[in-house]
Design a protein around this nucleic acid. Sequence first.
RNA 1: GGUCCCGUGGUCAAGCGGUUAAGACACCACCCUUUCACGGUGGUAUCAUGGGUUCGAUUCCCAUCGGGACUACCA
Length: 480
Amino acid sequence: MKNYRSEKPDGYRIAPSPTGYVHLGTVAMALVNSYLARQNHGRFYLRIEDTDSKRYVPDAVEKMMTTFNYFDIHFAETYVQSERAAIYQKYAEDLVKQGKAYYCFCTEDDLNQMRETQLKNNEPTGYYGKYAKCRHISQEEVARRVANGEKYVIRANFGYQDWGDRITFVDAARGEIALPPQINDPIILKSNGLPPYNFAHVIDDTLMGTALVVRGEEWLISTAEHMQLCDLLSFPRLNYLHMPTINIEDNGKKRKLSKRKDPQALVMNLVDAGYPREAIFEYLLTIYNSDFEIWRTANPTAPLTDFQFSIQKIGTNNPLFDLPKLNDIAKNVWARYDHATMIKVFNAWNWQSLPQITPAIKARIEAMLGVERGGERPRKDLVKFEDIPTLYSYLWDAITVDGASLDGALLKKYAAIYDANDDKDTWWQKIKNMAPDKPSLKTLTAQMRLAITGKTNTPDLWAISRILGNEIVKARLTRW
RNA sequence: GGUCCCGUGGUCAAGCGGUUAAGACACCACCCUUUCACGGUGGUAUCAUGGGUUCGAUUCCCAUCGGGACUACCA
């Protein structure tokens, strides 16, 4: 076991519970912690918080690791809380021996009854004061009841300590916070022999040497209890940083991103939709570090790891998830990639999910991914691969065209001179020759574009025509 | 209900006692353009409210209101 006293804590971590899915917020925490670890020359580690036996999900850890790997998130160490039961038990028993914790035999019914009474009397709910019945059970009785096979939990005895009016600490992002002490005697060991979050957190982060506990804002209030637990265990108090949580607007109300209602909440949904990983990182960085965008503008092509993450620039508001913003970032990320990278990323994506995909169409898509790419002003119309069937619908054989405005004779004239082998200048020269004045160049190209692609708004027509080839282009031109 | 956090445009936000209150997204207009884009320029729009403190408050204090979180043998 690590002796925390002899080492300077240098760890940063994420501590998800294994539900099988990685939440956007978890990726955000991973991102922030890995920056902090890198910048402070610390370790970045993973702790699986699986002490809730009711919430067991098979293969959950494997599934999460797949996602982390996909995002190139790697850990120096990995801990699993359920494998550490003996450690928590030892600390809990030690506290019992010191009179700082005690066995509690109250059943669920007892506790429900207690809560009802408290509610009825307008008293705060919880296990405290006169309601903490098991505080005073004698050692003999404890031994007897345990021997009898009665179920029990271990509770910290906060009642005997004097915690003062307030417990204060400095949150790395928010400054000084003053909280009333927890007066309840919290459970530190559940009847299944495992600790709940509060106890496991304090022990693990102390033993594992966490320099800064970076976690969601939802933990802010319980920090008082965590400090009391540290005190009880004679551990130095931990350092904390509470991050804002990402919300979403629902009927004019803010609420946390929910994995059931909001597909964006699960990062793999975003990935499956064909967003670039980097866009997800960049979006999270714009949310969590207000000068990221300024840095990105100044360093358009620098790798993300060059960015200096700053704790001072973490906001304290809970931001709303903004899909248009993510989309914009995605466009810019794609625009930075070269054609070879695009093809690589596209192939790594589950392109098989595209409708009616054939080798020929896939080849067209890959070619399309190179159109107007590179150079000073790359095109920015692709958000996510999932959009390809609508964005580049003309790459499929069957297209629907609203041809009401099309001039069949004109298009046939163009079909007659079109040759996919022409270079761009030749192609353009032919078009100019075709339309000295009669139809303006603008109308002519609009007609061609509509007939060939079914759209009024597409990338370079010459490039698209070449990808489709003589046969298809001419067929589409001559059917009006 | 209690406790804690938060409150600058539609969204993300800079600001940290004196500013024409940055910037990004979205929206609109115009410009550029050998097609479509990209890009460029400009525009609409913000300090929740009420009290203080101060020569002066977006900035500091208090109250109100609003939003969020916690209040489990879940994390």
